[in-house]
Amino acid sequence: MHPHCSIVPPHLLAHLAAVDDPRHAVAARAARRALVQLDPLLAGREEAFAAPVPPRTAVGRPLERRISDAGGQEILPGTLVRGEGDAATGDAATDEAYDGLGATDALFRQVYGRASIDGAGLPLAATVHYGELYDNAFWDGERMVFGDGDGDVFGRFTRSLTVISHELTHGFTQYSTNLVYEGQSGALNESLSDVFGVLVEQHHLGQTVDQASWLVGEGVFTDQVQGRALRSLAAPGTAYDDDVLGRDPQPATMSDFVITTSDNGGVHINSGIPNHAFYLTALHLGGYAWERAGRIWFDAAVGGGIQANSGFRLFADVTQEAARARFGQDSAEHEAVRQAWAKVEVTG
């Protein structure tokens, strides 16, 4: 099957591929093969096949979540407390992580036809209650890890769906562009996590571009902090302004690009620029952001045009090419992407 000739939508292929009934074994096998060929990354890049996918992992394997509890220690993975299909535990962090992984998988699987973060049904793993008063959430290369917050600046990190989807998107990026976590490529890595982070929330809540908050990490600050969230895609630099923490340092345009050695060269700072380019694209197109703007960014991420050391300019070119390929040279989508990158001063 040629990637562009498929009449079966990817989400249906993914569903078929997951069927475990011997009567439909042939169809399931065909669907799994089609999914591999449909995904240009899996079809075209040898390293994708060499990716650390566990043995016997079937392409199109259904969602499988595993939530573990570190019990306040800095150990991984901790004790498994909720597996796929298990009832809610009553522990807020565990159940929020479980639901958040489901919402993230739903966007990638149902909208973009990608089975899990690797496109091959990798089980999704998270650890909650990591460390004592641990004030961070991170991706460790295999799982996402959530602290309970220090109770002073940060509360529980799983309170915001965008934190969960941000972390899981680091996994998606690891299995697609694998952008180097330093400087501009690192800021693009961060931006992809913010972009798909907010899209997961918008998709989950059924929000249009106008209805969405475009905030990352809303609700993770305690009441003592003056701020709504950690980052804003709509207005970078405005998410918080606090007496102790200072002001949100994100720029929206290249004129305000921050040169720094901290934060791996400002990966969480300069991500404001590509974040805002995505927001402007989505705003221009209206409706549900995941349908067109999100589709273009997804196509760009899995299309093979982004290199691990790509900077903003190459990323801008690849998203414009992705818009042209899917929607046409004279399409509103192509024009929206072109204007957005010009407005944030990445292109002329």
């Binding site: 004030d135 961060e190 990490g217 950690l230 923490l245 200072g246 990966v267 969480h268």
Partner: peptide
């Protein structure tokens, strides 16, 4: 001591 990065990307000293 200066701590940068983290999910929040905030520098604390």
């Amino acid at each position: 001591i200066s701590r940068s990065g983290g999910f929040a990307g905030m520098t604390r000293t």
